[in-house]
Design a binder for these strands. Structure first.
Lengths: 329, 329
DNA sequence: GATTTTGTTGTTACCGCTACCAAAAACAGC
DNA sequence: GCTGTTTTTGGTAGCGGTAACAACAAAATC
């Protein structure tokens, strides 16, 4: 930058002002500087700028697992809004482990990110303390926790699960099985199970531990769950797969075994994957605002960072989901 | 850090040496410093460190589209290796537009990333020049380009497509249709088409423009392609869907219309999505080393950055793919 | 025309850390 | 004990920018 200043015959301050909007610089100077910048292909050092101004344009995102297509919509929403405002996204993967998450948070804080997005809502106390101390805004968006760290943009896993279970009950299904992903360090799964139980209770149905299962991600897991449930508890008449693509795996298993859906057993899923609309029978599911979550998260974060909108601290945005009734129920 | 130094009664230099490995510091000093660091919860400012040492631990990744499950495996491979070495990943989305890509590259260079990973192999001349000038190592990994910018870790789209087309030919299919994603600014699609034509030529089959299609991503697009091909050119006996989940959409269309696969028409896909193994009939496809690409990319990049392995400049790692024969062909 | 006001540019002091070299301390060898 | 070496520690000058304020010129006010 010194080089640019010398060649343009101005001070570095003038160059800085030309390159970053706000300063009032005469048209003449501006032109001179910009010409030199283009001539020598000068690239400002954003690191130096951030250090000096103690403002950064980086947002840190921590997801449990990157290879989960569920998040990609959220990441896309985040990324698009941030890019428009000149912010960058740093992504890391915590592997469903709060300690790992804490470590990543520490690294991000060390990098002086100006905001943090956490998918998980379970954190170590140390992580919470570090974040609080740093003073940067944070959004949690995998669920709506009891005690948010700061802001929340999400939907209620509990309510969504409750809604679908109630829906099944109202359709007349009486022995509703439930499958989710492992719930250790995964409060989304825990809340979905709660919602399921709350609905059973409301419907006057007895919970039956034999038909409440946890499993891993993947089609094979879904298939296995379906087979296990139907064979061990034949009177089951519906299966709610509240996670990943379990429902698709379960459906394939039914097709393979010749169990009509929903004739023999009804099937519901939790996320609106394109696939569920195209299989036959098409599968009832919940449409969750994945993209919106990313977009709103980015927007509220930017409000805090750019506009210093302190009144937004602690706000909880509970986005609505939608129940999609299809052929499988 | 000054604070830590004062409280520990040492110089900032000693603190710096304790906190970053290499410097030789007596055990006594080390303990004293670490104790103070823990006491006051000191977090080093990584920005300042990078600026001062002109070394950064950030890698920039640019993909055409974040919401594409194809990349997630590669990103995971990248992320895991980088994390182990204390590097961070910055991700941005170019939307299949080289100008957009150039802009993102500029931003990343401005942020002083120490390495760059580009999925696309099509760049503006200015982008190439900026990268060259910056001197940082780059890996392209969506394809193997004619003129790499620097290093390449990928598989050959052309060869993969050739292999599958030859496979179909050898199985006796004589009228092989081909569908890919739009090929503007997408040399992966272009190369796949080339591979297809090369194989047809080798097989002594005449190319027929009526059964070579380009379409968008998604199940619906695949279904539409299948319907269009079969109805407009009934003598077609195989369809090679070389992109996204087109093959799955195509398969569903066949099921809906009652066209036996492979009896009426054989079907092949391009990427080993879990789904293809679980549908019925299971779909023949190529297993591409998506995760490996990420892992190797990270490793070769780190060699260049940490070990300064200049001899690796320009190296091309052509990873092997595998053809998986299943029921659909 | 003298005085204020306004607008533009330059000066200086950091931001928080590391490189580089000098200084001090510890250890050898004779 | 006194040099010669090797460690360990400290001082200082940046890295490449920006904030804050000073300085100056142009415009406005009376």
């Amino acid at each position: 930058m010194r080089d640019v200043a010398v060649r343009a015959g101005v001070s570095t301050m003038t160059v800085s002002r030309v390159l970053n909007g706000p300063g009032k610089v005469s048209e003449e100077m501006r032109e001179k500087v910009l010409r030199v910048v283009r001539e020598i292909g000068y690239l400002p050092n954003h690191l130096a700028g951030s250090l000096s101004s103690s403002r950064s344009t980086t947002i840190g995102l921590i997801v449990p697992s990157i290879d989960n297509s569920i998040y990609t919509q959220t990441v896309k929403g985040l990324s698009e809004v941030l890019k428009r405002s000149g912010f960058q996204l740093m992504i890391a993967e915590s592997g469903y482990d709060p300690n790992e998450e804490e470590e990543l948070i520490t690294i991000f804080l060390s990098q002086r990110v100006s905001g943090l997005v956490l998918h998980s809502t379970e954190h170590t106390p140390q992580a919470a303390e570090k974040i609080r101390k740093s003073g940067i805004p944070v959004v949690e968006n995998g669920n709506i926790p009891e005690e948010p760290l700061d802001m929340v943009v999400s939907f209620s896993n509990r309510e969504a699960s409750y809604a679908m279970t109630m829906h099944l009950g109202r359709l007349g299904y009486r022995k509703i099985a439930f499958a989710s992903l492992y719930s250790v360090h995964n409060d989304r799964s825990q809340d979905r199970l709660q919602g399921y139980h709350a609905a059973l209770n409301q419907l006057g149905l007895d919970p039956d531990p034999r038909i409440v299962l946890e499993t891993e991600r993947g089609l094979a897991a879904g298939a296995e769950v379906m087979a296990r449930v139907v064979q061990s508890v034949p009177e089951v008449d519906a299966l709610f797969c509240a996670g990943d693509v379990l429902a698709v795996g379960a459906l394939f298993e039914c097709q393979k075994r010749g169990w009509p859906v929903p004739g023999r057993i009804a099937l519901a899923s939790f996320d609106d994957v394109d696939l569920l609309r195209h299989v036959s029978p098409s599968v009832s599911t919940l449409r969750l605002p994945r993209y919106d979550i990313g977009e709103r998260t980015a927007r509220i974060l930017l409000s805090r960072i750019i506009d210093g909108a302190e009144h937004l601290r602690g706000s909880v945005i509970d986005l609505k989901f939608e129940l999609i009734q299809r052929e499988s129920t």
